[in-house]
C-alpha cells in the first residue's frame, strides 16, 4: 500500500479548475519529482495535500487515512511536512526557534510544566535544542554556532537549510519540497543536491516529493517523475521517459509545427 495516494483529486477556485482528476501515488522511501510549466498546479497540489485547500472532488489517502478536507495541522501531525516556494521562515526569530517550531506538535510538556514544574520543561528543551543542533550541523557545520542569531541574517542557502531542518524536525514520513532551488545560483544548486542526499542518508525511510524547475535536480534525486499541465497529470515514469513524452515537450516547448 502506498504511503500517499490521491484519487481523482480536483481543486477549484470559483470556476477556475486548478487541479483536475489527478492520481498520484508515493511509496515509502520513494523520491518523486513533480514538473510542469508555471501555473500547471504543482503548488496547488502541495496545498491540497497539506490541507490548505479543500478539494472539490476526489480523495487523498495518507498512511491509510483519508485526509481530504482535514485541517492542515492535523495532517502535519500525521507525518506530512513541507517547505514553501517563498521560504516561510519567521525572520525575526532565531535559527533555533525556527527549527524548534517543527517540534511543537510532538511536544510532551505543556503550560503547566513551563510555569511550575520547570525541570521537565527544561529537560525537553535541552533535548530539542540538541536535536536541532544535530540537524543543522548535518548541512553546514557552522550553522549550529549561529543558532541564536535571527534567521533573517543568514544567506539564502542557509535559510533554505533551516527550512528543511524545520520540516525534518517534525520527524515526518513524507516531505514535500516546493522548488527548493528557486533563486539559487548553479553552485548553490549543487550544494542543494548534496543537501538532499544528506536528507536521504539521514532518513532512509523518508518519502520525498519535490517540485522543481531545475531538471538537473529532478534527474539527480527522483526515482520517478510526474508531469502536470493545466492541472492535469500528463505523464508519469522515469525521468528519461517523461522528458521525452510528447505532451511534456508540448507543454514546455509548444506544439511542433508541421512543415507545409
Amino acid at each position: 500500500m502506498s504511503l500517499l495516494e490521491t484519487r481523482g483529486l480536483t481543486v477549484r477556485f470559483e470556476g477556475l479548475v486548478a487541479l483536475a482528476d489527478v492520481d498520484v501515488a508515493v511509496g515509502e522511501g520513494e523520491t518523486v519529482g513533480v514538473i510542469g510549466p508555471n501555473g500547471s498546479g504543482k503548488t496547488t497540489l502541495f496545498n491540497a495535500l497539506t490541507g490548505l485547500y479543500r478539494p472539490a472532488g476526489g480523495d487523498i489517502v495518507f498512511r491509510g487515512t483519508s485526509v481530504a478536507g482535514v485541517e492542515p495541522h492535523l495532517i502535519a501531525r500525521l507525518g506530512m511536512a513541507r517547505t514553501f516556494q517563498s521560504s516561510r521562515l519567521c525572520l525575526q526569530l532565531s535559527v533555533f526557534d525556527n527549527v524548534l517550531a517543527g517540534m511543537i506538535a510532538a511536544r510532551r510538556t505543556g503550560v503547566l510544566e513551563a510555569v511550575v514544574w520547570r525541570d521537565r520543561a527544561r529537560a525537553e528543551m535541552r533535548e530539542a535544542l540538541a536535536r536541532a543542533t544535530h540537524l543543522l550541523g548535518l548541512f553546514n557545520p557552522d550553522l549550529p554556532a549561529r543558532g541564536w542569531e535571527r534567521v533573517g541574517r543568514l544567506p539564502q542557502i542557509d535559510r533554505r537549510r533551516v527550512e528543511i531542518c524545520r520540516a525534518l524536525a517534525a520527524a515526518p514520513a513524507l516531505l514535500l519540497l516546493d522548488e527548493p532551488s528557486a533563486g539559487m545560483s548553479p553552485e548553490e544548486t549543487r550544494e542543494l543536491m548534496k543537501d538532499l542526499q544528506i536528507v536521504r542518508d539521514e532518513r532512509p525511510g523518508l518519502s520525498i516529493v519535490i517540485i522543481e524547475h531545475d531538471m538537473f535536480v529532478i534527474e539527480g534525486v527522483s526515482a520517478r517523475v510526474i508531469a502536470l499541465n493545466y492541472g492535469r497529470k500528463i505523464a508519469e515514469g522515469s525521468f528519461a521517459a517523461v522528458v521525452a513524452h510528447p505532451l511534456v515537450r508540448e507543454a514546455y516547448l509548444g506544439q511542433e509545427r508541421t512543415h507545409a
Partner: peptide, 17 residues
C-alpha cells in the same frame, strides 16, 4: 514559540502542526 510562529506566519505554523 508557537504564538510567535503563528504571529509571523500563520500558514507555516499550521503546516508545522
Amino acid at each position: 514559540l508557537a504564538l510567535n510562529t503563528l504571529r509571523d506566519d500563520e500558514i507555516a505554523a499550521r503546516c508545522c502542526g
